[in-house]
Design a protein around this nucleic acid. Sequence first.
DNA 1: TATGAGATCAACT
DNA 2: GTTGATCTCATAC
Length: 189
Amino acid sequence: MQRIKRPFFARSVHEVAPDLIGATLLVDDVGGRIVEVEAYHHTDPAAHSYRGPTERNAVMFGPPGFAYVYRSYGIHWCLNFVCEPEGSASAVLIRAIEPTSGFAKMRRRRRLEDERLLCSGPGRLAQAMGVTRAHNGLPLDRLPFELYAREGEPEVVAGVRIGITKAAELPWRYGLKGSRFLSKPFKAP
DNA sequence: TATGAGATCAACT
DNA sequence: GTTGATCTCATAC
């Protein structure tokens, strides 16, 4: 498998997001195939970067190809990939993964048997893969991250984003068509 | 199947 | 003090 390098992320978040569907993401050898993502652009009221830099979102304003990890609802961690030229503060939220390696670790961390629910949601996949604040600002082309390009062209579907109230109508959610590991189904065309 | 509470942190009013 | 890029568990249809 071909490793994804940092320049891959130095493009519009709207190109990078669908291109990530089908790619393989591992953190300390635990992870799988990316089946669902959402794009967040700095001009987007729903993006953390919309109102400018803060201590939390500082990584989003840095160079592309780095991980932005934040605390969600005080409970969960969520993993993003920073995109576009440095300073444009756009990122892709990784929302669901089809587990392919490290099942034992994921089950232990999640205290859950059901494979389908191990990584089907941003908070769930971060917990299963052991992603925390410690990963915020780390480069995606170096350990503990491993990111491999997809082979072939998967069928990608788009839809409206989930769980947000601002700019909720924008169709910036992308998924692998027919995957049973999506956090929620995409509406039929 | 669907709705509701609770957990609990950082940004914002 | 309120809200949110969430998830789990409980209770009600």
